[in-house]
């Protein structure tokens, strides 16, 4: 599915990612942990194709296709989904309009017809309930005036609608109460299948109680310094990052 080798990236001239290697196979869930400022969001953004970041070396492929030169929207159409750490608002554009435009863009790329209005509405209502938001949210502007928790649920809602091949969740758990956390976890677990993969970026081990990862990686200062199974997360919880020789902020 996803293969990253020696990936390096910089922003505004500062090197942030200093050679990342990672392989994610179909069906796997990987957790990426690490202190603030270690480059977790940078990695997520780079994989999604944010042009604010410059790739300075290395390679990343999705199903053998190189991502480096691939435009953002094509990566999305190929099945990469990023749940943003800080979702932006698009005032005036309703969630429905937004989702329909997104779905139809992806369908067009696949040579499929536009989704019909009835089944689209049915699906949208179903998924909005699944993330425990009032269906009235569908008509509101994208994230417009949403609380932090509502924005995160909305990201999960979008993920459920788009059914990505590879979902990258950038600290979707941060700032959530336990109910919201469960909603997010249920959403991700619902998506899990032998064909789909998930990368969960998280600062805390808490989420991993609900979404059990196959692998855990520790990112520090732009490099993966340790990888292991789910027990690594528990170890981190117990001992903190200091144990690995990194300063915790």
């Amino acid at each position: 599915m996803l293969k990253i080798s020696n990936l390096q990236a910089s922003v505004e001239g500062t090197q942030i990612l200093k050679g990342i290697d990672l392989v994610v196979r179909p069906g796997e869930v990987h957790a990426i942990m690490g202190p603030n400022g270690s480059g977790k969001s940078t990695l997520s953004q780079v994989l999604a194709g944010n042009e604010a970041y410059d790739i300075t070396g290395g390679e990343a492929t999705l199903d053998g296709k190189s991502l480096i030169e691939m435009p953002t929207e094509q990566r999305a159409r190929e099945g990469i989904f990023l749940a943003f750490q800080y979702p932006v608002e698009i005032p005036g554009v309703s969630n429905l309009q937004f989702l329909r435009t997104a779905i139809n863009s992806i369908r067009e790329y696949r040579g499929e017809e536009e989704i019909d209005a009835v089944s689209f509405m049915k699906r949208a209502k179903e998924k909005i309930k699944q993330v425990n938001l009032d269906p009235a949210f569908l008509k509101r502007g994208v994230n417009e005036g949403f609380s932090g928790g509502e924005k995160k649920r909305n990201e999960i809602m979008q993920m459920l609608m788009l059914e990505p091949k590879l979902a990258i969740l950038d600290e979707t758990d941060s700032g959530l109460d336990i109910d919201a956390l469960k909603v997010v976890a249920d959403g991700v677990n619902a998506l899990r299948s032998p064909e789909r993969s998930v990368i969960m970026v998280t600062h805390y081990q808490r989420l991993l109680d609900y979404i059990v990862p196959d692998y855990v990686h520790v990112l520090a200062k732009g490099k993966i310094i340790k990888s292991g199974g789910k027990e690594l997360a528990l170890e981190l919880e117990e001992k903190g990052y200091g144990w690995l020789g990194i300063d915790e902020e």
């Binding site: 999604a48 194709g49 953002t72 929207e73 990023l82 554009v93 309009q97 435009t101 997104a102 863009s105």
Partner: peptide, 16 residues
Amino acid sequence: FLCQQRGMDAERAVSM
């Protein structure tokens, strides 16, 4: 970027 990350090309995003 959000719109493009959801599969829209920039033109479609702006028009939306």
